[in-house]
Amino acid sequence: MNEKLESRLRAALRPVAPRDEFTRDLIARVAADRRSSFDARSAHGRRPRARGWWLSAGMAASLLVAAGIQHRLQERHERERGLEARREVIEALRVTSQKLNLVYEVIKNQSSSPADDKPGV
């Protein structure tokens, strides 16, 4: 009984030689697995770093552009203010000189027609 069982088991579990393609397929699969795990690791590690760099560079460029625009606007504002102040100075002196001119006219006319004008200096 025991011998029969043993011979049946041996028959069922006898060593079988693998197919010819088995080794080749196995090597190919291991290589594929290694490649995919390497890609996944590199993608996981490199992308955020690259994204961070671009973000910093973008922010720095934006800041530079904003500072440049601000400087130009301030310069333009200062220039406009200066030109306006200059125009006002010229206008103020023009008004003052116009009135001084009138004073002069009155003083000048005093000698010709003293009854008309009354200057007091």
């Binding site: 004073v103 006219e105 003083i107 004008d117 200096v121």
Partner: peptide, 28 residues
């Protein structure tokens, strides 16, 4: 200066503020 012109009917007064021999203000 005080000027009164009947012809142009213009009255012009010039005032000055002098502090320590220096004109520091003018009003017309």
């Amino acid at each position: 200066v005080e000027t009164r012109s009947r012809k142009s009917q213009a009255n012009i007064d010039i005032y000055i503020m002098v502090t320590n021999d220096q004109a520091t203000g003018l009003a017309l």
